[in-house]
Design a binder for these strands. Structure first.
Lengths: 347, 347
DNA sequence: ATTATTTTCGCAATCGGTTGCGTGTAATAA
DNA sequence: TTATTACACGCAACCGATTGCGAAAATAAT
């Protein structure tokens, strides 16, 4: 079988007896080239089966049309939705995504960032790993003015934009809802407060307690990875408390932990929401499957991803100025379901 | 603020009074260069803050160290797990992933493939969209000997390898299990048979029926997108049947449809598994949350992704020969849970 | 017909590593 | 000491597209 050689603009040039420069311009519909030759070039490219070489192009033009994306993990509902949203936006504008996961490890996140930088991504979209302490590893991007957008798990930085929701407000609403349902001892199952999303949810929870004259107690605040195991562990913790010390509600910072906590408590004979009400965060598919359905915060991963990517691309195209915008906040709505409805008639 | 210029190997060369060629080799730990100079080069690179330019490198070496991945959609549990597995493998060997989704649209899949080709990915990992009829759009890859690996939704092709599970066998086991539980009218909720996974699951189901002297009926075979809605629709269909015509079991080709079918039937008062047993496919997180827990087939997305990517990379490195291997089949195990247990003591 | 203007296109340098081949030097053998 | 060999490194072409600048061709103006 014949080893096929790469077709280049030089082949087209030779084929048409014109220069490569003209071909290059013609291929990009540069008006400097007459319509007639442009058409000839296009046709010849078609005939010869020309495929542009992105490297040569990138090397010279210094644009990759590629966006880097770093996420804590790929296989969570929220993240994969965010990626789907980004991919959609990127695809629409002719951009590609290089995706890497940090697996919640700051070191891996650093390495990922370095690789992205070397691959000369035009911009970076990042959601921080749970134990990332600072963003020194993003300095190369800032120095070279490569735009960085944080999404979901953001970091305050005045040369980049953040896209997310108002976690404080959402958590406040969740907690207020539980209080309105008559709950007085609300346990909060939170994540690592190094990440804004968990810190802000905790703050919203505390503020709601305070505004309703309920005291905050360390005993009612558990912190962990919000995994299935963490949910189960939280249930064990609750069951070990003296019945009169038990919380009458749980507000978990994600649905996974909430659901596994519910399952374990139900297995131990507790009734939800009668004995203990529940609320989660994320509106993960499992929240609609668990019985009773879980009250949660609707949190559109795809919107966040789509918005973040679109914004980044607009900036790259000079349509909008990234540095003028510090943060973009998307809607997040409380979704009330049976797991928290103690009153027959909701407020 | 000073506009920083790019540091190149020429800068390092000048800095050390050696040639760029030596720097290039030294940076890659080429043994042709003495250890001493290699160290000097490394140190200088560090001091000057050198970052390699992947384009220039790729352009010349004709290797991108990038793998293309095309999936039907990013935000499904199985796919995001597969991607996570691939990312892991790729990262380990210094490869990156460019990911695109076809959204179950053959046209978008074509465009994705063309982009990947232009970006000169070293290899392609693809899971076909549900309505892809042929793989003509992959011809450019075959022609240029760029390795292609199909995973999960594969396509017979003798110059590329497939990675997946034995869907026929798994479906056979599921069906047999339901029969062993005493079910006689088993409805199959399937996907588009254009895709091997759904065709094979259907075949396994039919073979099991046949082997156990149960007849196959078109009325007990529904085909659809296996979405939440499809599950709900299937339930409506079942409820509209005369009670004596109703199936006593449902085998769904994925968990999502199974779960939403279950929920709708339960809402209508049917008991599971007493009135109707259920089995799904995928071992999606929701299968462990639904009550009763759903019997399903464990289907390791991450293993499939990891295996496919590792295999591809090994081929690129010349360690293994892709063309010698036609298919790699991974384990898939029946996970029996309460949704199908009609006998107290399982077989 | 001649000059001015606009349009269309080509020349050649450039982006930043990579690599085949050749050469000078030092180490080793004769 | 001289011849041989291995080692370490440099030269320069190359990958393929992009682009500033200048020239030629086509068109308009005088």
């Amino acid at each position: 079988m014949l080893e096929e050689r790469e077709i280049t603009i030089y082949d087209i040039a030779k084929y048409l007896n014109i220069s490569a420069a003209t071909v290059s311009r013609g291929l990009k519909n540069n008006p400097m080239i007459s319509k007639a030759t442009r058409k000839k070039i296009m046709d010849a490219a078609q005939v010869l089966g020309y495929q542009s070489n992105a490297f040569a192009s990138n090397l010279r033009s210094r644009q990759t049309h590629t966006l880097g994306v770093i996420v804590p993990r790929l296989n969570s509902y929220f993240m994969s939705s965010a990626l789907a949203g980004m991919e959609n936006a990127a695809n629409r504008y002719g951009y590609n995504l290089i995706i890497a996961q940090s697996l919640e490890d700051a070191e891996k996140e650093k390495r990922n960032a370095a690789t992205m930088f070397n691959k000369r991504v035009d911009g970076l979209l990042i959601s921080l790993s749970s134990n990332t302490q600072n963003i020194n590893h993003l300095e190369p991007f800032f120095k070279r003015k490569i735009p960085v957008i944080f999404f979901d798990r953001v970091y305050p930085h005045n040369e980049s934009t953040s896209v997310g929701i108002n976690n404080f407000e959402a958590a406040y609403q969740v907690t207020k809802h539980l209080i309105d349902q008559g709950c007085k001892r609300i346990l909060h199952l939170g994540g690592n407060v190094l990440r804004n999303v968990y810190q802000e949810r905790l703050n919203g929870y505390r503020k709601a307690l305070q505004d309703h004259h309920l005291s905050f107690s360390d005993k009612l605040h558990l912190t962990g990875p919000l995994s299935e195991q963490a949910g189960t562990d939280a249930a064990r913790h609750i069951l070990e408390l003296a019945p009169n010390k038990r919380p009458d509600a749980v507000f978990s910072a994600n649905d996974t932990a909430a659901v596994y906590c519910m399952l374990a408590l139900q297995a131990a004979g507790l009734r939800i929401p009668e004995d203990i009400a529940f609320a989660g965060f994320n509106n993960d598919p499992i929240s609609k499957v668990i019985a009773p359905n879980l009250t949660t915060v609707e949190y559109h991963g795809d919107s966040i991803g789509h918005t973040a990517a679109t914004y980044l691309i607009n900036h790259l195209k000079g349509i909008s100025d990234l540095y003028a915008t510090n943060a973009i906040t998307l809607r997040a709505d409380l979704v009330i379901r049976a797991s928290s409805l103690k009153n027959k008639n909701p407020e």
